Amino acid sequence: MVTDIYQVQGMTCGHCVQAVSAEVGALAGVDEVQVDLASGQVTVTSAEPLDPAAVRAAVDEAGYDLVDR
């Protein structure tokens, strides 16, 4: 198992959390997505390391911005 923490900007409500969780959770290999609305942190647990471009695209599809690490 691999756990990565991403920083996402622009989330302000429960709908935001739901949208990001759904898009990132749909990526191949993702087992769990936890979103902390207050901090903007998105914790993703997956079987293998995820392609950063795929995570960025999923967050973008949800309507938010992934902060560069």
Rank of each mutant, 00 (worst) to 15 (best):
V2S: 01
H15S: 13
A62L: 03
L37P: 03
P49R: 13
R56F: 10
V55D: 05
C16M: 02
Q34A: 10
A38L: 12
D65K: 12
I5T: 15
E48I: 12
H15W: 06
R56Y: 07
G25D: 14
M11E: 02
T3P: 09
A38S: 13
D51F: 05
T12A: 09
C16R: 05
V20L: 05
C13R: 04
A22R: 10
V8D: 11
T43V: 15
V8A: 06
D31C: 02
Y6T: 13
Q34Y: 03
E23T: 10
D60K: 15
V24E: 12
T43G: 13
Q41L: 14
G14H: 11
V44Q: 12
V59G: 00
Q7M: 13
L66P: 05
M11V: 11
C13E: 00
V8H: 03
A19M: 10
Q34L: 03
Q7T: 14
T43I: 14
C13K: 01
V2M: 01
T12S: 11
C16H: 02
C16Q: 01
A54Q: 14
V24N: 13
A28L: 04
V17C: 11
L27T: 08
L66K: 00
A58K: 10
C13P: 03
A57M: 06
S21R: 11
A58Y: 10
E32I: 01
G14D: 14
L27D: 06
Q18G: 07
Q34M: 00
T3G: 07
A54I: 04
V59S: 02
V24D: 09
Q9S: 07
G10A: 05
D68W: 07
V2W: 05
E23S: 13
A54Y: 03
R69Y: 03
L37N: 04
G40C: 05
V33D: 06
V59T: 05
T43D: 11
A26N: 15
L50E: 07
R56G: 09
V42G: 13
Q18L: 05
E61Q: 15
I5A: 10
Q7E: 15
V8F: 07
D68S: 08
R56V: 10
A47Q: 14
G29A: 06
G29W: 02
G40L: 05
D31T: 04
L50D: 12
I5V: 15
S21I: 02
D68Q: 13
E32W: 08
D65S: 03
A54F: 00
A19R: 11
L27A: 04
T43N: 09
E48S: 11
V17I: 15
D31P: 02
C16S: 06
G10W: 01
I5W: 06
A28I: 03
V30Y: 07
A58I: 14
Q18I: 02
A19L: 10
L50V: 05
E48C: 07
S46E: 00
G29I: 00
S46D: 01
A57Q: 11
V33N: 04
C13F: 00
G29N: 12
E48N: 07
D65R: 12
G14Q: 14
D68R: 12
T3L: 12
G29K: 12
M1I: 13
V17H: 04
V24C: 08
A38M: 10
T43Y: 10
V59N: 01
Q41F: 09
A53Y: 00
A19P: 09
V55A: 07
L50I: 02
Q41W: 06
A22V: 00
G29F: 03
A19C: 04
M11Q: 06
S39R: 07
G25H: 08
T43W: 09
V55C: 08
M1K: 09
S21V: 02
Q9Y: 01
